[in-house]
């Protein structure tokens, strides 16, 4: 295993320490900071936009408009005109409507990639943390291997092996998160295993299963929730990167920011705004999730507790 991946693994393990029992308390503290509030506002607006965009989009994002098509040539993509706020895209669709609806598809990819990563990671980490011993050793070597491959390369390899569809992107991006969540939950559960209240429960003869599910797991998921928030940001960026590399969704019509950005790359000289707007949208949303996640992590850190 490389030094780099060892360092990665150690960093993740150290994040898991400190427990989470004070999650509520921590949340309250989180939202005292303006940075956290900014993050929450960005994320909130994004989610609202994702939900309502199909209803507020002025035009249908999934069909070409003759007005736009009429002026569309390989070297000229129409800019803003009446009824079409940002003009046309390369296929004669309403760019503005697609940009709005893109919030929904982008959130979809980000959320599912993260959820799948969390789910698989928690199963691996939970088993390792609950059983210890050789189960732990085997599973952790597995995550070490996954961590030793640079994350985007891992996603690229998976995406290259599977047919190009939206779910391929989701699964490829999810795999990046798996070892991170696994190690995080394992670390937190191991910390829980030697905690006073787990010892006390063991001294009362409480069953193993109950100890794991009632006493260890609920006290271990705080760091996972924080990491999931941060992962939403990277998942959206990684999905965009896959699309940019042509390994993304093969349905070019789908209005998703990463895909729109990927498909705009040959048109940078013709109409740069086709790349610019989706890129800005991705960056702002990723920033929102990162600000939120980092402030949550800070307030969960026992060192910062007041």
């Amino acid at each position: 295993m490389s030094i780099l991946s060892t360092r990665k693994a150690e960093k993740i393990d150290s994040l898991a320490e400190g427990g989470t029992s004070l999650a509520m308390d921590a949340l309250r503290r989180t939202f005292r900071s303006p940075v956290a509030i900014l993050g929450l506002v960005i994320v909130g607006l994004f989610v609202i936009l994702a939900i309502i965009s199909p209803f507020i989009a002025p035009k249908d994002p999934y069909r070409p408009y003759p007005e736009l098509k009429a002026e569309l040539t390989p070297s000229n993509i129409p800019g803003p005109m009446p009824g079409f706020l940002l003009g046309s895209d390369q296929n004669g669709y309403d760019f503005f409507s697609r940009l709005l609806v893109g919030a929904q598809q982008t959130l979809f990819v980000g959320v599912f990639a993260t959820l799948i990563g969390v789910a698989i990671g928690m199963i691996i980490g939970g088993l390792a943390g609950a059983f210890g011993g050789w189960v732990d050793s085997v599973l952790m070597r597995l995550t070490d291997i996954m961590l030793s491959v640079p994350s985007l390369l891992l996603a690229i390899s998976i995406a290259a092996l599977l047919p190009g569809s939206q779910w391929t992107v989701i699964i490829a991006v999810a795999m990046i998160g798996v070892p991170v969540f696994a190690r995080l939950l394992r670390g937190a559960m191991i910390a829980q295993r030697s905690s006073d209240h787990v010892l006390a429960a063991t001294a009362l003869g409480v069953k193993r299963k109950t100890i794991v599910f009632r006493h260890m797991l609920p006290n271990s998921i705080g760091p996972v929730i924080v990491q999931a928030t941060l992962t939403l940001a990277t998942a959206i960026i990684d999905a965009a990167a896959l699309s940019f590399l042509g390994l993304g969704d093969s349905d070019w019509r789908r209005a998703e920011w990463g895909l729109m950005l990927g498909n705009a790359q040959e048109l940078l000289s013709v109409k740069p705004s086709l790349a610019f707007f989706p890129a800005i949208a991705i960056i702002v949303v990723a920033l929102g999730f990162t600000l939120l996640g980092e402030s949550m992590r800070e307030s969960l850190d026992p060192k910062n507790r007041r």
Binding site: S21, L22, A23, S195, D196, H197, L199, A200, A201, A203, R214, H215, P218, N219
Partner: peptide
């Protein structure tokens, strides 16, 4: 045990 503050499960 010695420490009543940490011997109870905080989340239940």
């Amino acid at each position: 045990f010695q420490d009543p503050l940490s011997s109870l499960n905080p989340v239940i």
